[in-house]
Amino acid sequence: MAEERHHTEHIPQWKKDEIENIKELIQSHKVFGMVRIEGILATKIQKIRRDLKDVAVLKVSRNTLTERALNQLGESIPEMTRYLDNQTALIFTNESPFKLYKLLEQTKTPSPIKAGAIAPEDIIVQKGPTSFPPGPILGELQSAGIPASIDAGKVAVKETKVVCKAGEAVPQKLATMLSKLEIYPLIVGLDLRAAYDDGTIYEPELLAVDESKYFSDIIRAAQNAFNLSVNTAYPTGATIGTLLAKAYAESKSLGVNAVILEPGVMDSLLAKAHVQMTSVASEAAEKDANAVDDDL
């Protein structure tokens, strides 16, 4: 303790204030996270900060100060220092880490890829017209590996093609052409590297919630409930109509199939007989038109 106090005495007041400020933000919010901001323009960060201002506080600070602040806090908060990256911001919220992750994902926008950058996924150029009139661009596209030709007075991409495979670096020429074609292969925004909530550290793999899976789970759960209710004839507001319809349909089926001469099924029985007659008549008529009445 004495040594630490001794150590802190050497740092200027603004740094002390900054560390205190970080600690205070962590303590006054339920959740805080580490966000990677490397390569993101300051203007974009400003915009995200504004967009999130009602739900989260974004703080860009020096890693050394952040590290110091975290190390001065209890529980397993110091473990969060593992997620400090080259350029890391802190984010604070009272929402759940899952909500925080979702909010940050929503700030992401497609961006052009720079020459030499690694393609995160296959970069595909779709077949179709471009906005360019014929000119030198045709040759530039072709030399960048994009199959282009002239179609209806415009430069057009001849076929859909993977121009750069995932994991490969994007060549200079291709990067330029992709930009011109307004193809933005990168999704850029704040990357949540980890979130701390009440003693638990959540990593992105856990935080990336697949809403479509929940949607299909709900469909399945609702279906299960519906089936169980109907199949056990346990009536609920949602299934009583189906139960009545089922009972009626079964009764009607029985009536028609067993030829129960009851008023409720006569229409079906008469219709069935008529159709059978028509079917037999049409086959008979195929053999000999005189075998049946003219009106058949």
Binding site: P263, M266, L270
Partner: peptide, 14 residues
């Protein structure tokens, strides 16, 4: 059961 049933109508539906 056929009392009151319009046979023509039932057939027409068929």
């Amino acid at each position: 059961a056929l009392e009151g049933v319009d046979i023509e109508e039932a057939i027409a539906k068929a």
